[in-house]
Nucleic acid binder design. Sequence first.
DNA 1: TGTATCAGTGAATAAAACTCATGGATTAAA
DNA 2: TTTAATCCATGAGTTTTATTCACTGATACA
Lengths: 298, 298
Amino acid sequence: MSSNAHLPSLSVLRCFEAAAKHESFTAAAEELGLTQGAVSRQVKDLEDQIGAALFRREGRGVRLTHAGQRFAKDIAQNLTQLRRSVFQAVAAGEAQNVLTISALPTFATRWLVPRLVDFKQVHADICLVLQTRSEPFDLIEEGVDLAIHFGAPEWPGAQITPLCPEDLVVVAAPELLRQQADPEHPDMSALPLLHISSRPHLWDAFLKGQSSRVGSKNQSSYFDQFSLVISAAISGLGAAILPTYLIEDELAAGTLVRLASVPNSPNQNYFIATPTAVPNPLAAAFAAWVRKQVTQRV
Amino acid sequence: MSSNAHLPSLSVLRCFEAAAKHESFTAAAEELGLTQGAVSRQVKDLEDQIGAALFRREGRGVRLTHAGQRFAKDIAQNLTQLRRSVFQAVAAGEAQNVLTISALPTFATRWLVPRLVDFKQVHADICLVLQTRSEPFDLIEEGVDLAIHFGAPEWPGAQITPLCPEDLVVVAAPELLRQQADPEHPDMSALPLLHISSRPHLWDAFLKGQSSRVGSKNQSSYFDQFSLVISAAISGLGAAILPTYLIEDELAAGTLVRLASVPNSPNQNYFIATPTAVPNPLAAAFAAWVRKQVTQRV
DNA sequence: TGTATCAGTGAATAAAACTCATGGATTAAA
DNA sequence: TTTAATCCATGAGTTTTATTCACTGATACA
């Protein structure tokens, strides 16, 4: 049915995508490095091909119609996926095997990437594409072979391999502790607290467990990535609750000092997710390698 | 990263898609209505842009390289989705609301479509896109708002609404029965049997349950859609096990005669699947309407 | 009431896609 | 082994498509 239908050209679709994003032909033209007239023409062509108005011309500007909104959503997605395909093809080049992995940003930077050399020694011929993601997503749709994530072991359409608990500890910079009355037995609830936005209640839960009173929120700072929390903690901005996996170097070097252990949350673990649909030996090898890396740890 | 990367044009991609499908530039050109030279050039351009050989030139012909196979798979999927988006936009036109539904082929033809008039009376302003599918698939990826399916109520990433059991009956054309020794008490195991390919053991299970001996397979015929089984049964080719939903008219008109009831399989039902991700009021309204239609039945 | 800011458009130009014609390489057949 | 047929690559030329330029009209805002 639609298989041989005449497709609008990519330039038409790109123009529409940008025009829809900005609801402005001029802004779209600027983004694309074209003139406003070019965008206007392309959009008009598209409307002729679709057979429906995609924009309502309202005086000085343009607004998406209902049909335009629907189509823009679809097209944006289609083009994103197309770009991903092309990008992966360019990245992979002529490599025999490609493995696309996603991981949590800070976990990727601090734990995974430093260890990848080891994996590459065994699998020298592969092209590895690593992307960072903070939320679960559709593995197949995004062409990802394997994801490393943290939380309850649930991921639609994916097979789960548990890895390890999170292993949280309370840490602070040594300088920060020296400012306290008794540096040997610091009063954590008196320290400024550093939070990770995705889990704002970590400190609350910990301090309650300690039957400490909860520290003043006035001194709290929130960051949306662990890497930011780590930097903040090192610079002495406050005390943080962090996974040991992410601060192994800092603990060893003494730039962060461990103040206490935090009980692991039940049913919250690092885990690997792989698409159930297609068995992928390379992804399986990678998963096995990650598990080995985790257990090798003291 | 890849967002502003230069994308190969659609003509390039279509040429590659066809060339990859046939592993022949000439055949691709024929499919696309172009000359062989055009395809050859476009593929070469694509290879330059990707920076990798996608085909190995082997004497008279061409073969996909590893990289080519990967890329071809991705591109075929991308283009299919793009075509679907465009098709839906064309189909929907300026309609305010679009509802895309998938259903089992024969269920759609015989049960759903005849009743759609009723739904359209309440929801006159919507554009309805109906597609038939025999297997579960990714609802979101394919842009389907609601699917009606039969089997165990499982569908990854979807919310399930049970509808009704299958309600199978054994039927045959009256002419076929008249040829039997005792038309009032036909011997089913002596009749030629009509099977649906997707469930080849329906008859076995039924006849065993009846402690009848299983009829000779020599007289069996297999069809991959219920609609074919129905036609065959009406024309007197044999006895069939069919859902009453699909042959209401024939039973009423007497072109098919009910010989026996078949016990419902446990945990096998008609059900509705909707994507869990986005709540869709129109899909919910449709689901409610279908449920009403089902229960209205005597 | 003037000015700045949009989108639409005719005519011209640049770029891309395509054809035609041809040559080289390879296979299958005589 | 020669011959014919088939397939891909490519130079030159043509057609189609995309884009610009320069201008128009509409509209909001001051």
